[in-house]
């Protein structure tokens, strides 16, 4: 994705962990994770129920009106 090619679409939304979230064309899984500040390392991502492998977060584009589940596992004492 080159800079300047993201087309904002104000009316378009996706659902990320049950929350309405703004969508824009070309938005990747990595973009959503960054936007949500999900810095926890043990994540599982599904777009419309389909598992996205970790090494495809940068290249997986989230379609408009998608349901994105970013499941945080547990860790710590």
């Amino acid at each position: 994705m080159q800079a300047g090619t993201i087309v904002p679409a104000a009316d378009s939304m996706i659902v990320v962990n049950s929350e309405q979230t703004e969508w824009s064309r070309g938005k990747t899984v990595s973009d959503v994770i960054k936007e949500k500040n999900y810095i926890f390392p043990l994540l599982i991502v599904r777009i419309n129920g389909k598992l996205i492998p970790r090494d495809e977060y940068d290249s997986s584009v989230v379609p408009d009106e998608a349901t994105v589940d970013i499941i945080h596992l547990m860790s710590g004492g």
């Binding site: 962990n17 049950s18 999900y38 589940d69 970013i70 499941i71 945080h72 596992l73 547990m74 004492g77």
Partner: peptide, 18 residues
């Protein structure tokens, strides 16, 4: 103590147990 169940991510972040 949280050592019986640490559910914050499941509940608050993932919204898995509504």
């Amino acid at each position: 103590q949280h050592d019986e169940a640490w559910l914050i991510f499941m509940d608050m972040v993932n919204k898995q147990i509504p």
